[in-house]
Amino acid sequence: MNTVVAGITYRALLGRRRIVLLLLLPMALLGLALLLRLMGSDDQRSTMLLMQNFAIGTMLPLLGLIAGTGVIAPEIDDGTIIHLMSKPISRPVIAQTKFLVAASLLAVFAAVPTYVAAWLLVGNEDAIAPGFAVGALVAGIAYAAVFLLLGVVTRHAVTIGIVYALVWEGLVGGFVPGARKFSVQQWAQSIADQISTSPFLKADVTLGFAVPALVIVTVVAVLWAGQRLRVLSLTGDE
């Protein structure tokens, strides 16, 4: 972790238009929660619907994509990363710092709003709010790692990330039960299920699979990103 790298990265993400996207999605979640509450639909069933479809199913992967690729892909794209890479800081440290920035942003922009939204609807009933918040946090960390790696490896990180989040997790996961095992969203739900005692929540993937999977994916992706950064050539344009 390098504070200067982190500072520049925060500034790059929060000081520009990307912050609109980062804010828009949690605002929509909170707005929906508020609306449901005002309409009097603040029951567990609606909460599940909002959490599973919107918070974990839509908002989290999109935020993961924006934050995860956003911390590094634009810099590689326009060459500004050379400023960091021409300093006596090991490249894996750069990658790790960027990962921490992305993960922290997801904690703030995804996990916290998830908690608040669920809390607005059902309070702390059956530990639904903490369950989904922790699920979103852990899955957000994994997304940050995966999309960071994608941002280092390819220039089409956003497109590939969308295809992964939408097609694999959304569509394929919806129809092919086996594919659900390899879906960050499902792992998040397993964790939420573990913490929450709500009868409405039933995860497809066992905790015994989800936790090691999350840890392995995160660690491998961050380490790999660091290694890829070490051999990154910046003369790709020629």
Binding site: L32, L35, M39, S46, L49, N53, G57, I162
Partner: peptide
């Protein structure tokens, strides 16, 4: 890339909220 992501994010935002809103309001 960011443009593609923004447009799709906004669409998903809109379409993912619809069933949630509709079914909960209906059940209420």
């Amino acid at each position: 890339g960011l443009g593609v992501a923004s447009v799709i994010a906004l669409y998903l935002l809109a379409s993912a909220s619809v069933p949630i809103m509709y079914s909960t309001l209906l059940s209420a």
